[in-house]
Amino acid sequence: MKVIEVYKLTKMLKERPVLNGVTFDVEKGEIFGYLGPNGAGKTTTLRILLGLLKPTSGKALVFGKALGDNEDLRRRVGVLLANDGLYERLSAYENLGYYAQLYAVSDRDEKIRNLLDFVGLLDRQHEPVGNFSKGMKRRLALARSMIHDPDVLFFDEPSAGLDPEAQKMVRELILRLAREKGRTVFLNSHNLDDVQRVCSKVAILQHGEIKAYDTVENLRRKVRTPAVEIVLTDDNEADQALTLVQSLAYVSQCEREGVRIIAMMEEENIATLLSALTKEGVKITEVKSVTTSLEDTYLKVIKHAEGRR
């Protein structure tokens, strides 16, 4: 079941195209990563999905409808925007209480306390939010986005300003929301490590256009450059080893960093490479194939798209 559908979405702001034919969809229970450099149009897409902006053309639907005109549907959506959206003069409890009333949440007190406990702010529930650190505000805003137990959550940089421990908490929370509760999560993020760990599918946006859209694994496979890392035992043998590796027909490119040599080649040729090196008396500590991270994938997609402009 498709929870989010974006089809040929175009948006002009001040006669400038911000989005140009963006198409993707997100299935129920999926964690979808929406990536792209600053100014790519990620937040504009999010704002259109949330009904804050109207599309110039195309569709941006949540549960098959546009959120903008549908007050009841908005009750099924939780939001954490780049701005925390908290009231600094109200306490943490009052902030959650306010939104709990706006979403007509039942058992307010219990839910608020549970959420405050979950984000580690129960002992500071009566303090004005203005006294909180950036990380604490972010955690409270995260709790606020879940106060009405929404079916779909839109997170814009949820771990921005959080320490590593809190970032881990956010990741675990997102995974739990999707795996245990079947919630759908739309994650707008720059944190590629987070996205790689939690997202099942990603789209990479640049200059208002989708440049890549697939599962994380498929994307990594698509842009992968096969490479092998050879760690030598003796630094004195590095130059000799480099010359030898460079001379091999199946190695397209090769570079050296201290005792490490990175050879662009298919994994299947590792055995031949090893025998060639040992034949020349080069001592080897380790040989392993180099994996492509989401960061490598992202940078390659962006660079490739930049080159085509």
């Binding site: 704002r47 009904g51 007050e71 908005r74 701005n83 959206g85 706006l102 979403y103 606020r144």
Partner: peptide, 14 residues
């Protein structure tokens, strides 16, 4: 100015 209004606009209120 503080963009808090955006979150409020996402609630089910008109």
């Amino acid at each position: 100015r503080e963009k808090v209004i955006e979150t409020l606009l996402c609630t089910p209120l008109s």
